[in-house]
Every structure is written in structure tokens, then in C-alpha cells.
């Protein structure tokens, strides 16, 4: 029986594992963290319909059978070529035979401390969208650093995305709609709170996204077109300096809590593995498939396939489709090998 090694246990890796198992292949899934689930596993509710992230995780997990074995806390030392394929050598010395390898190493969130002017890690009342999801999940209640309920909350779009100075020119796709979703959630949780959103453009590209944006406006969320220039904290309040580019006026907005919508970054592990496997990386740091239109899951190196955000920012639905597509490609490859 053919064996596929999947690197990365986020939604892409898990979905591909389930499908490959169903297709009759042996699958070994390697995850660097203590548990599989990736970013979706840490998220509370998902856009656009605000269903629980755990529902999607359950759906994916259900497909897994005994053909899939998962190794967590797995570090990869090297990937060697062998006469019949590859050998993935783990840091503990174990070597795993692979007829094909699927790279599903995904992304990591932009480190908001690199946009120091927004004060993340310096001021207590500046958090990221990921922090807010954790608060939703674990605390169920939003408070400022001194334990008060915030009366004014602002969201900042494009933190680490579409930002040449941050080194990332690309759009991370999912932050706009995440920001709108979270703004609505905050407003629903605290109807008296004033919620602002600072944006460059609102990119509502997918189905039901625009409706969510309209809903947010109807709920009284204030959208201000302008890129936040700097932030400083004064007696626990966050002072935001921004130019309203629709009126052309510089303005200052004082809020109790500032949420930074952090974008996607290629994970350092992706870069390392791509180097080992000699597969190409684009100027944005994500892996380049051999063709962006017609061969999104192939690398040009025989037996090495791609799925999910390893080839750039994607939302969950697209990632799952991409994973199934990769599973199909791998199945074809193994049959003709």
C-alpha cells in the first residue's frame, strides 16, 4: 500500500488526510504542535454565518479512519530521497517512508509587534483579532486591562497586509470580513458600545460577505476610510491618530480597546521545507505551484504536493476544496507511479 506523509495538521492537512484515507492510502500526518486543528481550532465563530469553528472541525475529523495516523509535536530534521520516493526524518530520529508528500504548512499570523506604531505588546488595551477570538471562546466577556467594560472599541484593518513597509504587499483576504464579523459580535455583546473600523478598502469578495457588511453598517458601526498612523495610550485610553481620507481631515479618536486585524504570513517552517525540497517560493514568501490557474497543487518536484494557505491566503471553504483537489492529484499520481 502506498503511504502519503502530510506535513501540517490544520484544516488543509486534516481534510486531505481524511480523503486520502478514504481513497485507500496509508496516511501519516505530522503536526508540530501538541494538537491538530491549526488556526481554525483556535477560532471561535466563523464568517459569514457565525457558526462555531468547532462544528467545521468535527465535520473534518469524522472523515478520518484507521488509515490515518497522526504524530503530534513532530519536528522534521530532513527529507531524503529514496529509490521509491522519500524518507521524512523526524528530530527524534524516526524515518517515515513516503511515496508522496503533501505540504500543508499553512500560515502564521503577522506579528503585530512589527507595526510598533500601533503599540501591540506595549500598551495593554491593544489586542489582535486572534486575541479577541480567544476572549470570545474562553472568557465570553470583553474587558479592558483594568477590568472595565469598554465603551469604545476600534478595529484596524490591514495590519501587516497590503503594507510595503511591513514587507507584505499582498491582501490577506480574510481580515476584512473577520473584522466586520467581530465588530458585529462586539456590538451584539455590548449594544451601548461605540464601534469604529479604520479601513483602506473593504474587500467583501465572497458570497454573503457584502450582506454582512451592510448588517454592520445598520448596527451603527462607524467605518472610517483611512490608515491609522500612530497610537498612544493616555491614562488607559488608546488615542488613535488617523486621517479620514474621504473628508481629507486628520482626526484623533479615543477608544478603550483597539483590535488589530492581523494578516497572513508564510510560516517559517514552509520556507525551511521548501529549501529542503527545492521548490519555488514567490516574492510574497508563499510557495509557488507550477501553475496558478491549472495546477495549484503541484510543485514541479515529483511526489511533492501543496494544499491550503501554503500557497497564499485562503478562507476555510477554499482551503477545504484545495485540500480535496490535492488528495485527488496525489491519488492520480500514486496510481500511475
Amino acid at each position: 500500500m502506498r503511504q502519503v506523509v502530510i506535513i501540517g495538521g490544520g484544516v488543509a492537512g486534516l481534510e486531505a488526510a481524511g480523503f486520502l484515507g478514504k481513497m485507500g492510502h496509508q496516511v501519516v500526518l505530522l503536526e508540530k504542535e501538541k494538537a491538530v486543528g491549526g488556526h481554525v481550532g483556535k477560532w471561535d465563530r466563523l464568517f459569514p454565518n457565525r457558526r462555531q469553528g468547532s462544528e467545521v472541525m468535527d465535520f473534518i475529523r469524522k472523515k478520518m479512519d484507521e488509515k490515518v495516523s497522526i504524530i503530534t509535536e513532530a519536528g522534521i530534521k530532513s527529507i531524503d530521497t529514496s529509490p521509491d520516493g522519500y524518507a521524512v526524518v523526524l528530530t527524534n530520529g524516526e524515518a517515515i517512508r513516503a511515496d508522496a508528500i503533501l505540504l500543508a504548512t499553512g500560515f502564521e499570523l503577522f506579528d503585530a509587534r512589527k507595526k510598533e506604531e500601533y503599540g501591540y505588546g506595549i500598551y495593554d488595551n491593544v489586542i489582535t483579532s486572534a486575541d479577541l477570538e480567544r476572549i470570545f471562546r474562553e472568557e465570553g466577556k470583553i474587558t479592558t486591562a483594568d477590568g472595565q467594560a469598554p465603551q469604545k472599541v476600534a478595529f484596524v484593518h490591514c495590519v501587516g497586509s497590503r503594507d510595503e513597509k511591513a514587507g507584505n504587499v499582498y491582501c490577506s483576504k480574510v481580515c476584512c470580513v473577520t473584522g466586520v464579523k467581530q465588530a458585529i459580535e462586539v456590538k451584539e455583546m455590548m449594544p451601548a458600545a461605540k464601534v469604529y473600523s479604520f479601513y483602506m478598502d473593504i474587500r467583501m469578495f465572497d458570497r454573503h460577505f457584502e450582506e454582512l457588511y451592510i448588517e454592520a453598517q445598520q448596527q451603527g458601526i462607524t467605518f472610517i476610510r483611512g490608515r491609522l498612523s500612530e497610537v498612544y495610550e493616555d491614562q488607559g485610553k488608546v488615542q488613535c491618530k488617523v486621517e479620514d481620507t474621504l473628508t481629507g481631515k486628520p482626526m484623533k479618536v479615543t477608544v478603550d480597546l483597539l483590535v488589530l486585524l492581523v494578516g497572513f504570513m508564510p510560516s517559517p517552517e514552509t520556507k525551511r521545507l521548501a529549501g529542503m525540497l527545492k521548490i519555488n517560493i514567490g516574492s510574497d514568501g508563499f510557495v509557488l505551484p507550477i501553475d496558478g490557474h491549472i495546477s495549484q497543487n503541484e510543485t514541479g518536484v515529483p511526489g511533492i504536493f501543496l494544499a491550503g494557505a501554503v500557497t497564499g491566503p485562503k478562507c476555510i471553504a477554499t482551503t477545504l476544496s484545495d485540500a480535496r483537489s490535492a488528495a485527488l492529484q496525489i491519488d492520480q499520481y500514486l496510481k500511475t507511479k
Binding site: E116, E117, G119, I122, Y123, S229, E230, V231, Y232, E233
Partner: peptide, 9 residues
């Protein structure tokens, strides 16, 4: 320095 608040702090 206003853009690098850690220094100001």
C-alpha cells in the same frame, strides 16, 4: 519616536 512607542515609553 511617536511611531516607535516602546522608545517613548
Amino acid at each position: 519616536t511617536h511611531l516607535t512607542p516602546a522608545i517613548r515609553k
